[in-house]
Design a protein around this nucleic acid. Structure first.
Lengths: 120, 120
DNA sequence: CATTCATATGAACACTTGTTCATTTGTTGT
DNA sequence: ACAACAAATGAACAAGTGTTCATATGAATG
């Protein structure tokens, strides 16, 4: 491929002014990438269900697995994804590890999410 | 597999009360599924970038493709996903189809998203 | 310190998803 | 009606992701 444009639109009608305006106001690539990564973490039904469990109460891995009728391994893997993305935190108590939502931001996003889906 | 539980936790320590409480307060399966599907749509950097284009101005397929330096086909496919999920709407003007954000809800989610990612 | 239990982790596989390429649809202008 | 162009669509392929199975860690208890 060449440097700038390849076989995109050779279209001549392109609205240069709009493109310039939009381009000027677009957030940085990196911000948009991080944002999509964040949404991606929420975009899995198992993880969403886990988050909603923790919305109600802190829980250990085994309890979540029991409640969601899934294997301990699957839940543990997903919890590690959630933790890596700072959506949950954990605290150890003997052999048991209790997970909970990381902060109020996560609560807010979940709250708004359900609202959006249930209303209208 | 049996009916209720299979080879989950045979763990005896399960916290029955917590599980009962959480189970009682969990939103319906369907709601959580729809919610994860919604987040999934936001969870792709191409779609996020398209949405942010439209956040600034309505645009036609070709303009978006030019701005994002991607093929017309790729953009068109993604727009169809966004439209199917009611995040964007379109209006035809001759040969050109202009896309824009579907409603203020979408704006709000994007706004909150960037805030969350950029701050802190 | 060996055993047991709760959790974590690695590898593998099936499934999903985004892009490309080729083609089609639908609209305008001649 | 035909040519030209913007957009949409289908098939196919590559890359990413979630679960399972097997196993490892790490903490408590006897």
């Amino acid at each position: 491929m060449a440097e700038t444009e390849k076989n995109l639109c050779d279209y001549l009608h392109v609205h240069d002014q709009i493109i310039a305006d939009v381009n000027a106001q677009m957030p940085k690539e990196e911000v948009l990438f991080d944002l999509s990564e964040l949404f991606k973490v929420f975009g899995d039904s198992t993880r969403i269900r886990i988050l909603y469990c923790l919305f109600v109460s802190e829980m250990c891995v085994c309890d979540i697995a029991t409640l969601l009728n899934m294997t301990q391994s699957a839940i543990s893997h997903q919890l590690s994804v959630l933790k890596r993305n700072k959506l949950v935190k954990s605290r150890r108590e003997g052999k048991t590890v209790f997970y909970s939502l990381a902060d109020s931001h996560v609560r807010a996003m979940l709250d708004q999410g359900v609202e959006h889906v249930t209303e209208e």
